[in-house]
Design a protein around this nucleic acid. Structure first.
Lengths: 306, 306
DNA sequence: TAGGCTGATGCTGAAATGGTATCAGAAGGG
DNA sequence: CCCTTCTGATACCATTTCAGCATCAGCCTA
C-alpha cells in the first residue's frame, strides 16, 4: 500500500474536498474557493484517484457524500484545525511570544540579580519555556559558542570572539567570608593579612582562571600568602567549609547570603580588589526570537548598555 | 493575516520540511525523498516565504532548525500522523470494514429473525456503527427511497420501483392472539368465526394497507365481520389491549411471544390466511460498502435468494 | 592547495493547472 | 409541452510551475 505522500496528495485537494463536503455543491464550493467549477471538479477527481474510492455520489441533480467520504470529512476536520493551530503556534514562536530559551548562569548571578531578570522575562513572555542550567563561566562560554545554549550570565570576561555578543552588566568587588566568630567579622572592611592562620578555600582554577589568578595576585600584593585549603566545587560548598572552620573563602557581596548565619561577609580593604565582571553574552548569529526579549529585559535592568 | 490555504501551502512543503528537520541535511533529505537537492531547497524556500519566517539556519557547514522551525516540526509530527490515521480509517470505510449502516425495521422483524442477522453482521464488521430505528413498513420504504437510511427489514411488499432492490426473505402466516383464558386458546388452530364476540384490535391502515385489507378480506371470506376495536399504534400496545380483554389481534408467529403469558397465540384455520412478506430492501444505487456485508449476512441466513 | 562537503542559483523542457466554452441530464415553471 | 435553469463533466488552450541538470560560492579537512 502506498502512503499518501507517495501519490501526490496535497492540501488543496483536501481543502477542495472539505468545501464540497460542506456545501454539497461543486458550484457553490468553487465560488467559495474563488475557483472555477471545472478546476474544482478535477481536484475532487484527482483526490478520488489518489485515495482509490469515490468520495461523492453525484449526478445531475446534486452531490452527496459517500460513506467513506463522510468518514474522511469527519476525520479531516480536526486534523486541519490542528494544522492551523500548529502554524499559529510556530508563528508565535517566530515572533518570540512562544518557544524556548536556553539560559546558563553562574551561582553568582542566580544568587543576586538574575531571579529579578528572569521574573521580568516571564512576565513579558509567559509562554516561553526557560531552560535554565547552572554552569561555571568557562563552560558557559563554550556552550554559547557551540550553540548548545542561547545565552549566558557569567562572571568572567568572555573570549573576544567576533561572533560573540557581550553585554557588560556591572563589576562587583569580591569580599571575604569567615566564620561568624572570627576576629575579622568584627571589622567593617578586612585586609587580607587579617586572615592569617586561615586556609583559603578556593575553587578549581579552570572554572575561572582570570579570577583565580587575580585573587592570588591581590593577596600577594597585600603581603598575604595563604595556605590553599580544600578546593570547593561551588560557592555553596565553599560556604559549608567555612562554617566547619576549614578556613575562609571569597565571594561577591550579592551572593554573601549563601553562607547563612554561621558566616560573615566583609568587603576587602586594599588596592586592586579583584572584581567579578558580570556579563550577559550570546551568539550574534543566534536567531532565537525570544533572545531579543531577554536582551531587552537585561538592558532594562542595567540601563541601556549596548 | 492570511490563512495557510490562501498562500499555497501544500503537503509536499511540509513533507520536505519534516525530512530536512529530521535529517538536518538538504542532500540526505533530498535523497530520502527521491528528489534532487535544488528542488528540495526550493520547497523549503517556498515554505519559508509562505509562513513568513526562517525555518533553518543554514550555511556552508550545515543546517540547524530555528526556534520557530523546531516548534513547527514538533507540532507537525502528530498532525501528519493523524492525517495518515484519518486516511487509513476512510480507506477502511471504503472497504466496508468501518463506517455506518442505517437500518430500519418492523417490530415483526426485530422480534423474530433480525437480532440473529444483526449479531452475525456485528461479528463480521465489528467496527461498523449500526444506526437502528423501528418504523412502520410504509415509512421504511419512503426512508429508503429518499436515501435517509441504507436498508429496511419490512413486512410489506415494497413498491415496484426499478431503483429499489428487494430481497424476499420468507412468507409467514399470521395468527390470532386472544386472552389466555379465551375458548379459542384451547384449540390447535382457530377459525375466525370462533372469535365472535371479540373486537378486532387492528392497526392504522396506512401502516400497511395491503395487510390491513387482506386481513379483513380473509375474515369476510370466512364469514366473520368483527367489530373494529381500538387501533393500536404498534403490536406491543395491541398485545396489552388483548390482555385487558378489549378483544383479539393478529400477529405473525415469530412475534407471538410479545404478548407474554397473559395471551395465547394460535394459527388461523382456513383458506388464504394472510401472510407477511418479510423483505430486505435497499436502493440499488446505494454505494455504502457496509451494505454489501449486510446483504451477505441476510443471504447467508435465508439461503442464496437473489 | 586540492578535494571533500555544505546549500543556492540559472536555465530549460516537460508536466500540471486554471480558465473559457461547451456538453449532457434532470427539474421546475409558464 | 417546451423552455429555462440547475446539476457536474469534458475539451481545449494559455500560462504557470516544477524537477533536474549544471554550476556557483563558501567552509573544512587532508
Amino acid at each position: 500500500m502506498l502512503k499518501w505522500y507517495q501519490k501526490g496528495l496535497e492540501l488543496h485537494h483536501l481543502q477542495s474536498f472539505m468545501a464540497v463536503a460542506h456545501e454539497l455543491s461543486f458550484r457553490r464550493a468553487a465560488q467559495e474557493l474563488h475557483l472555477a467549477q471545472p478546476a474544482l471538479s478535477r481536484h475532487i477527481q484527482q483526490l478520488e484517484h489518489i485515495v482509490g474510492y469515490r468520495l461523492f455520489d453525484r449526478d445531475t441533480r446534486g452531490t452527496r457524500l459517500t460513506e467513506p467520504g463522510l468518514a474522511l470529512a469527519d476525520g479531516l476536520k480536526p486534523v486541519l484545525a490542528e494544522l492551523g493551530q500548529t502554524l499559529r503556534r510556530a508563528e508565535e514562536a517566530a515572533e518570540g511570544r512562544r518557544g524556548r530559551l536556553r539560559v546558563v548562569y553562574s551561582i553568582a548571578a542566580i544568587s543576586s540579580y538574575l531571579p529579578e531578570v528572569l521574573q521580568a522575562f516571564r512576565q513579558r513572555r509567559p509562554e516561553v519555556r526557560l531552560e535554565l542550567q547552572e554552569l561555571e563561566s568557562a563552560e558557559q562560554h563554550a556552550a554559547v559558542l557551540a550553540g548548545r545554549v542561547d545565552c549566558a550570565f557569567t562572571i568572567m570576561e568572555p573570549p573576544a570572539r567576533p561572533e560573540l555578543k557581550v553585554i557588560p552588566l556591572f563589576r562587583e568587588q569580591i569580599g571575604v567570608v569567615v566564620p561568624r566568630d572570627h576576629a575579622a567579622a568584627r571589622l567593617e572592611r578586612v585586609k587580607p593579612q587579617m586572615l592569617a592562620g586561615l586556609d583559603y578555600i578556593s575553587f578549581p582554577r579552570h572554572f575561572n582562571p582570570r579570577l583565580y589568578d587575580s585573587v592570588l595576585a591581590f593577596f600577594h600584593r597585600e603581603g598575604f600568602n595563604p595556605a590553599l585549603g580544600p578546593v570547593a566545587i561551588n560557592r555553596i560548598n565553599a560556604m559549608g567549609q567555612v562554617i566547619t572552620g576549614s578556613g575562609f573563602t571569597t565571594i561577591n557581596a550579592a551572593s554573601a547570603h549563601l553562607g547563612g548565619p554561621g558566616t560573615a561577609f566583609r568587603p576587602f580593604d586594599g588596592e586592586g580588589v579583584p572584581e567579578l565582571p558580570h556579563t550577559f553574552s550570546y551568539l550574534a548569529a543566534n536567531t532565537n526570537p525570544t533572545l531579543q526579549a531577554m536582551r531587552a529585559c537585561v538592558q532594562e535592568r542595567f540601563g541601556g548598555a549596548a
